[in-house]
Design a binder for these strands. Structure first.
Length: 384
DNA sequence: ACGTGACCTTT
DNA sequence: AAGGTCACG
């Protein structure tokens, strides 16, 4: 059985893109809860599915290395040489000259196909990581406008917004309501396993594509997902898929990339299981709305704790008004890429990344947190 | 317009 | 209680 590629083994063909760690940190970007489909398959090596293909990524100081697997789980070599043999051998009547000519032409075609594949793969990664956006410049700008950001940013460099497939993003984030990351990861994995196409197997691990809208809209989906532990979200997923196909069509989600932020967000909110927060996540992470700032309980905590964000009559839960006000607050502070900046602070607040903060002296004393994924916010005594 | 509780399941 | 949403008053 095929194995996961490892850079140090040297036996595999790795391709690469020049990319500094200030522009991209795989460990932070792929594990901060934007996408739920990446796993660290060996140290510093991340394997996941993008664009219907299985990839392993790793990086050195100024290089992003990538490997794409064949659908059957074998490594992609220099092209499909095997497929060409039969054609040549069948031409028994050809002279040696003619045969050589054909073989040469086929080789050239194979090379051309390989080059074309390489270019396509690089383009896919550049698109997925949005490498045309200069993250270091953005950090500089955010840091200049916001001292707290600057303090965090020196450690949490390279946290970059992915440009995810809108269908995967929407249906993954419908799963996030009232939920935590570790469970969401398992649910999304089971969703792909149950309704997505098998792409390849590596080291006993099967990789599946994210299910299509029509696969998700199938009537059997709700019961199936309830069996798989999705709870009340099972119905939201099936109903949203059906509603999109019935009311808009299969290309609709992608089309929202060319629609203004608020309009796209409101369109998404019409779907079952999609409220303001989920809609903002989909806008930011898959629909090119860099100024969408998803406000969840943790971002609210961050706003209160680190930005002394206060409200006259503080509600128990996040209200629609609070969504807008906190969003506007951060958009004013960080500018048109506010959603990207927010994701840096969100990432820095994840419990699994707290060890990176050692040496950074925070105002608040360290306290053992019972929270699963986030640092709990210490309540202000004066308020009670 | 807000405030509240139910909703599935797991830690 | 977990990265909310929906249906009520």
């Amino acid at each position: 059985m095929a194995r996961h590629a490892v850079l140090s083994s040297g036996e595999k063909i790795w391709k690469f893109i020049a990319c500094e760690k200030s522009q991209l940190r795989l460990d932070l970007t792929l594990a901060c809860g934007q996408s739920f489909r990446w796993r660290e398959t060996s140290e510093g090596h991340w394997t996941g599915v993008v664009g219907g293909r299985v990839w392993t990524l790793t990086q050195t100081e100024d290089t992003l290395w990538y490997h794409v697997y064949e659908k059957n789980g074998r490594y992609m070599d220099t092209g499909d040489g095997t497929a060409n043999y039969g054609v040549s051998l069948n031409e028994e009547n050809k002279s040696q000259m003619k045969l050589r000519e054909i073989v040469k032409k086929e080789e050239e075609q194979a090379v051309a196909v390989t080059v074309q594949n390489d270019e396509e793969e690089e383009a896919m990664l550049r698109d997925y990581f949005q490498l045309n956006v200069n993250l270091r410049d953005l950090y500089r700008k955010w840091g200049a406008a916001d001292p707290h950001f600057k303090k965090i940013a020196d450690i949490f460099t390279g946290v970059r917004m992915l440009r995810q497939d809108p269908t995967e993003c929407l249906f993954s984030f419908i799963c996030t309501s009232n939920n935590h990351i570790s469970r969401i990861q398992g649910m999304v994995e089971r969703l792909c396993q149950a309704r997505g196409n098998l792409l390849c197997q590596l080291d006993q691990t099967s990789y599946y594509d994210f299910p299509s809208l029509s696969a998700l809209a199938d009537n059997s989906v709700e019961a199936c997902l309830r069996e798989l532990g999705f709870g009340y979200r099972a119905r939201f997923l099936q109903k949203s898929a059906k509603q999109i196909l019935d009311n808009h069509g299969p290309k609709w989600l992608e089309g929202l990339r060319n629609v203004p932020y608020v309009e796209a967000r409101d369109a998404l909110r019409a779907l079952p299981g999609v409220g303001t927060k989920v809609a903002d996540c989909v806008c930011l992470m898959s629909l090119d709305k860099a100024d969408a700032v998803p406000i969840d309980t943790h971002v609210w905590q961050i706003a209160k704790r680190d930005y002394k964000y206060t409200t006259v009559n503080e509600p128990k839960n996040i209200t629609e008004k609070l969504h807008k006000d906190i969003g506007d607050f951060f958009r004013k502070l960080w500018g048109p890429y506010a959603g990207w900046a927010q994701s840096v602070l969100f990432c820095a607040d994840l419990k699994k990344f707290q060890k990176l903060k050692e040496g950074l002296h925070l105002k608040r004393p360290k306290k053992e947190s019972k929270g699963e994924s986030m640092v709990t916010c210490k309540k202000k005594r004066s308020k009670y």
